[in-house]
Design a protein around this nucleic acid. Structure first.
Lengths: 164, 164
DNA sequence: GAAAGATTGTTGTTGACGACAACAATTGTC
DNA sequence: GACAATTGTTGTCGTCAACAACAATCTTTC
């Protein structure tokens, strides 16, 4: 849905039942413009779609990528720690890890120190795979740069740095 | 969440074997930082939660608000036009409108020009309600300003203007 | 003017995702 | 040792995007 991003032509329309034909592609959002949440939502949908498409060959979704990245950077973390850090529920992480473990990318090692928890590690296969994922993710980031501009992307990261 | 500050307690943690320990609350995201998608996702979650909370009394969610706003600004639109403009599936819009129509905020008028489509209008009750929603939404926007700063919010809107 | 094709609203299914609740096993605390 | 808290797990519920299929209705084409 690459919106044509046409500039708003001042089209004021009184919508009665008479043939709203021409405006189908040029609806004024009016009040919606100026809402940060709406812009962010649309942008986030675009970004995720591009990420999913760019990492489509390896079948890795954004959440899976974030889990792999955190585990790769901090081997031995418990599920609780990973969930808390990424802001996802531990109940949800269970399924994510089930999938990743089934694909032999991650292994759950029973922790000796705390026999309730699992220490999470990448498999050797998982490490080489993650390296490839990171290359594809970098390609995705280049798409973002092409979309909004290099400086704007940097600005964005700076503004939202507090949320990571 | 909102662990902006280092609330680190000098707690000891059971790391096993390999490297890291005592990192439960201070996990390095490393590669995740620098990914626009991750920051945007976290920010979008925060924004929606604040929106839902701020408009909690009137029980209006972001998507519902966007639908009402578009219909209010462009009365007589068809469901297809609204769906396309907001980037939501027409199948999904059906349920959204069912809910809004049940609450007497929106009415589907059978279009005479095209008997397949419905012309969407706000009810008088819907218009007064939307006015209140807009006031609350403005309050929500102020929360965003407090969170990221007034200039940063303006920057954000400017950067993401192409997605609205 | 009738057949073929496209569009609109609708219903349904699937899967990812967040929020909660309950549970067994284990740990920590008193 | 009794009791509370934590960890992983299972389950349910609701939101949301992506499809597929369908009837009714337009549009196109011969």
């Amino acid at each position: 849905m690459t919106a044509t991003a046409a500039q708003s032509s001042p089209r004021k329309r009184a919508g009665n039942g008479a043939a709203p034909r021409d405006i189908a592609d040029d609806i004024g959002l009016d009040a919606l413009v100026g809402h940060a949440g709406y812009a962010v939502r649309r942008f986030q949908i675009w970004i995720f779609q591009d990420f999913i498409r760019t990492l489509g060959d390896v079948d890795i979704r954004p959440t899976q990528y974030s889990v792999l990245t955190v585990i790769g950077a901090n081997p031995g973390l418990s599920q609780m720690a990973v969930a808390k850090r990424l802001g996802i529920e531990r109940a949800r992480l269970v399924h994510l890890l089930d999938s990743l473990e089934q694909r032999k990318l991650v292994k759950r090692v029973k922790s000796k120190a705390d026999r309730r928890s699992h220490a999470l590690h990448l498999t050797t296969q998982g490490e080489t795979a993650l390296a490839k994922f990171k290359r594809l993710a970098a390609e995705h980031e280049r798409h973002v740069e092409e979309k909004i501009g290099k400086e704007n992307r940097a600005q964005l990261l700076r503004i939202l740095a507090g949320f990571t």
